[in-house]
Design a protein around this nucleic acid. Sequence first.
DNA 1: GCAATACGATGACGATCGTAATCTAAAAAG
DNA 2: CTTTTTAGATTACGATCGTCATCGTATTGC
Lengths: 223, 223
Amino acid sequence: MSIDIYVCWTVERRSTKGRLDMRVTKAQAEQNRAHIVATASRLFRERGYDGVGVAELMAAAGFTHGGFYKHFRSKADLMAEASASGLSQTVARAQGLDPAEFVERYVSREHRDGRSDGCTIAALGGDAARQPADIRTEFAAGIENLLTALQSQGDTPGDADQRAARMMVIDMLAHSVGAIMLSRACPDGSPLADEILDVCRKEILASLAQVNSDQLAASSPET
Amino acid sequence: MSIDIYVCWTVERRSTKGRLDMRVTKAQAEQNRAHIVATASRLFRERGYDGVGVAELMAAAGFTHGGFYKHFRSKADLMAEASASGLSQTVARAQGLDPAEFVERYVSREHRDGRSDGCTIAALGGDAARQPADIRTEFAAGIENLLTALQSQGDTPGDADQRAARMMVIDMLAHSVGAIMLSRACPDGSPLADEILDVCRKEILASLAQVNSDQLAASSPET
DNA sequence: GCAATACGATGACGATCGTAATCTAAAAAG
DNA sequence: CTTTTTAGATTACGATCGTCATCGTATTGC
């Protein structure tokens, strides 16, 4: 997943150092741009929007800071794009998972401890709330996409109460996000951090199971 | 609530401008320090730890930035103190509320739209995860205090399964925090933002009611 | 092939960042 | 009363911030 196929020809290029300045194919440039966005998405998740500067970001992608504004109109623009990229990655990973499977992976120590490769909502949701409208719009779209992805795999095949399924998924997502964020706010080896995760995973799965059994009961006419 | 009794003698003082530099009572200094912490707690909640500089912070409190290091060893120190202050405010407000009352106030539009006066966990939890250990320790302590405050008012009077009550409160808190953060990440007038809040409030209250009825059923010996 | 284009490097800009030294005068200590 | 202490203002440090101007060159459009 998220293989990051980007071959580091740029490093080679920069190793030639001094004066061998060479221009780059249109396709290469596009690829470079995508690589910058991917790098930004990772770095922002790790240290927050304000925690990474343009220069450091470009350096991490294998470039100098000068070329930045050939690709993006501002840092805020990149923030929006990197957010969208990260969010769609989360959506892609949720595809084909039923809610219980999603929760099992989402509310886990591995996810909590892997900020840079984890869910953008959990990593940057708190920061996004303070950002301009276009970034929050990306978040809303990402959340909406995640909802439909999770709903499509739900156990409600198809009838009028897809509304109930949507409600269930919204609630489950908020619950899972809250569990991760609360756990991450605690010190690293903290017992409370693990307790929060374990308790919430159990409770969320239980409430999913209960919804399913309610549905079963509703579908059988008697008792 | 949180009346901010701090009388603005400092403004008067600063209006005297130029050369009337006067020293301040030990009690005044202590009061000033507390005021700086309170101002920082509010500003940090509004704009994040990285979103407010020392100079702006001191100016907001009515001082120049020079005196800062007479009160705090570093900005990180103030961040820890401001966090602790904000967290204990949240705990104080939760005192005497049963879980349902807490949820009703917490998972609300008023709370979501009032970042600077709202819960520190919801406002800075995402940022805290990226901060040094001492700040996360403050958060863990604050969360623990909030848990006991909410548990003390729960409907479980006192027996061996206080563990169940604790689990319930942990789960409810993570759920509520997630709802607020998710809603805040959406654009200002967004329907999704309100939908998340409404759905989650309803579901959290429902699950609280169910826990209560389960308890009732368990306490009565037959059926 | 020639001219125009544009990616990326280099360097610099004003502003702001966290931190610190210096100074002043009144409160605290004696 | 004299001395010491210290809260807070002023000023300044070096680093970093986001942004931009300049330039060179290889790619692109003709």
